[in-house]
Design a protein around this nucleic acid. Structure first.
Lengths: 342, 342
DNA sequence: GCTTGACCCTCACGCAACGTCAGGCCGTAA
DNA sequence: TTACGGCCTGACGTTGCGTGAGGGTCAAGC
């Protein structure tokens, strides 16, 4: 019983073109031709085609099917496991995508901005965050979610900051310090008080001009806030120090370098991994910590005690520093009890 | 600040070729060229590229992105909803596929047949079932799952049947009748006692020579079983009927036509959909039922009563008929109380 | 014998989003 | 001046077919 190509196509639900294709790539060559050149398929051809169809339904590529049926290449279990892994990854990727899209649509219906350009910049921001943070981290960053209140609060902060800069307000003015304190406080909350997130965020804002433009948080704004924040902290230290000590601290107080955030993030990382304070690596970190501390605290242990007192009396000093009691104890142990760090 | 193509590529993580491609399809044309013909991208180009990248991460096609950014074509919400739907379908399909593959791998490790050809025919069977039955139906068909005991039981049945045929055993022989009764009983169990599944199965075996070959359930085997099953039922009727009645029934007893299964399946369908027995469609079905009944029961109501008595006394007669009490009552109502059907 | 319509044949381009040469020009540093 | 890296355009390859174009084959009806 020989079938012509059209009949075979009808029986199998494939198209004639598909059978032509299989013939041309050598996957299924009809075992005979009529005098006129018509393809003639016999039972064995049909059986082979059925197997091909079965394998195709497993989303296997034609070349893989060919190799499998020819006996060349890896065997069944290998191929199936490969397929399984591949499909699993695909599902995961697609699901993540769909979830993100769902979130975006939610924002689209929630928010009142059907403006294409605005929406695109929002999207751009999101993808930028995606590049710098893992999915798990993103969920801990409060301002990337759907919380529009939080977003507008930040927008307000930025507007106020720019206005102050435009009005020529000094970072040492009270209103600037209040803003800076609120700013950093919100930032600590929104980074889940995790110094690693804070550090990554700083890194991202340093690397991506795009995000600075789109959030309005320019280098100028950042500098202003950091400066005002430093002023607000210095103000808290003042009454605990002698004029000389205060003057020294003021001139050497850390600016907005990324040294401290990076160090703090690193310490936190070691803590989370359960590394002992006696570990050499941790000791090195503590050493760095102590050096950086002395840079503005000076070398007099008496001054250090005063600073410690300030930390106890003024809770605002440890606020928005991404440091908690546990970390202070940890560093204390790492550095040895004889010296008193920040 | 104008960027050459390589610099832009490095900044965005794309390849030069990709940017060439975007240029050639008009998605992103650099706003300037150097004297030597080098592409020069300015800020607005870069911004546009960022938006393109953002949209690409949503798995949107380049043409869709182009249309969206040009403002032609459907707006954002439409596109997003489309994407969502598309991704959802894709996920579903892929998940079904992965599950099937997982099942197959399971069978591969369970079973002791690493023989490619055998495994391929198994796979072929599965895909054939897939074509004829929905996912939900497949779960109700006992022999398509991983139940190897059930499968080997069926294989044994087939072997026994073929042996009988080879030995020239008559369908009216006791051993043939016992086999047939077991066969049909298993079939009723394995089709979840649903006449629709039974009918579909019959249809499938009628249409697909492949499945007949691979299960070994040839037309000959089917005929033998049906014949023996009819004999076994006739034997049960015999003692309730006069010799004349029995002779009439014997000559007219339904063979293996698909009339009865189809009719029963159709009735069941209407019952499940909550259609009333008084419904014209149902009445027509009942009429057909009655006609087919009289074809072998004759026209004498006295004979009908005897048959009814047989049904009450011999539970084996309603076994493996895909008929239950509810259906008999339903048909009774549809046909009117004055006539007594099967 | 001729036409007609349904099939069949072999090219060959098109699709999506680029990867990957090939052959040649530009720019700059040694 | 030469060498090397970067840029240009053009063109083919990838996957699994869809969709013609242009032209034979076959059986039926006139």
């Amino acid at each position: 019983m020989l079938l012509k190509i059209g009949e075979l196509a009808k029986r199998t639900g494939l198209t004639v073109r598909t059978l032509h294709h299989y013939d041309s790539i050598g996957l299924l060559k009809p075992s005979a031709r009529s005098d006129a050149g018509y393809r003639l398929y016999d039972r064995t051809d049909i059986a082979r085609l059925h197997q091909i169809q079965a394998l195709r339904r497993l989303a296997m590529s034609l070349s893989a099917i060919g190799a499998l049926m020819a006996g060349t290449g890896p065997g069944l279990p290998t191929i199936i496991d490969q397929q399984l892994r591949l499909l699993g990854e695909q599902i995961e990727r697609t699901e993540r995508l769909r979830d993100r899209l769902g979130q975006l649509r939610q924002q689209l219906t929630d928010g009142q901005e059907p403006e294409l350009a605005d929406w695109l910049t929002t999207l751009e921001l999101m993808t930028m965050y995606d590049r710098y943070f893992s999915t798990e981290e993103l969920q801990r960053l409060a301002f990337v979610g759907t919380d529009t209140d939080r977003k507008s609060a930040w927008a307000a902060n930025v507007t106020v900051a720019r206005a102050m800069i435009d009005r020529g307000v000094s970072p040492s003015d009270a209103e600037a310090q209040i803003l800076a304190a609120r700013w950093m406080g919100m930032l600590e909350e929104d980074t889940d008080a995790d110094p690693r997130l804070f550090h990554k965020l700083n890194h991202m804002f340093g690397e991506e001009p795009g995000i600075r433009e789109q959030t309005g948080i320019s280098a100028e704004v950042t500098a202003f806030i950091h400066s005002a924040f430093a002023e607000s902290r210095l103000a808290l230290y003042e009454k605990y120090l002698s004029p000389d000590e205060y003057a020294f601290m003021r001139t050497n107080f850390p600016g907005h370098s990324s040294d401290w955030p990076e160090l703090i993030a690193s310490v936190r990382q070691h803590m989370d991994h359960g590394v002992s304070p006696e570990d050499p690596e941790v000791r090195a970190l503590a050493e760095r910590w102590f050096t950086m501390f002395r840079r503005y605290a000076g070398d007099d242990p008496a001054t250090w005690m005063k600073i410690r007192l300030a930390h106890e009396k003024e809770p605002g000093l440890l606020k928005a520093a991404w440091i908690d009691e546990a970390m202070i104890t940890f560093i204390g142990k790492a550095i040895g009890r004889d010296r008193t760090p920040s």
